[in-house]
Amino acid sequence: MIDLARVQKELVECSKDAEGSGIKVCPKSDNLVLLIGTIPGPVGTPYEGGIFQIDITLPDGYPFEPPKMKFKTKVWHPNISSQSGAICLDILKDQWSPALTLKTALLSVQALLSAPQPDDPQDAVVAQQYLKDYQTFVNTARYWTESFAKESSRGIEDKVQKLVEMGFPEAQVRSILEAVGGDENLALERLL
């Protein structure tokens, strides 16, 4: 049985600090088991300026079992699968501790973007490129960030504009778009 009181407290804590850190967590639907996390790309890395979305699923044993996280936004990183978005991070596996929270887990994922570990790769192709041809890796990572992470952000802005022009309040539009993971049709259904 998930400790829902703790999850609610974590969501409140994340929303308080969302302006400063840029890390957000919100429910995907009307339950606390499926969540969407959002992290900004770290400054000084090829991922700078990108907004990366992460699917979060809380197991029944949470907080004694680690949350299941994977990237929804495509990202070029040695420790993140470019195909499935699976993340290779020890605190999401055997090094999980119940004192960690969703926010600290997302911070660790953000730190992983800053400091890749090619010796323990999730994506062998990216890791090999990182080791043998670093400049190409940087260019590819930046290109993927421009193509997917920023496009996702720009797409959200366009959808917000469309829905605001329909007459809905902007704050509500943004929160619902985040909740449905950027799907304009689902957001429209929920607004009506």
């Binding site: 400790d3 009181a5 703790r6 407290k9 974590e10 907080p63 004192a99």
Partner: peptide
């Protein structure tokens, strides 16, 4: 407990 002055790190209570 008074010196610790913090919540349980597991359940946040």
């Amino acid at each position: 407990l008074r010196a610790y002055d913090d919540e349980c790190a597991i359940c946040r209570e």
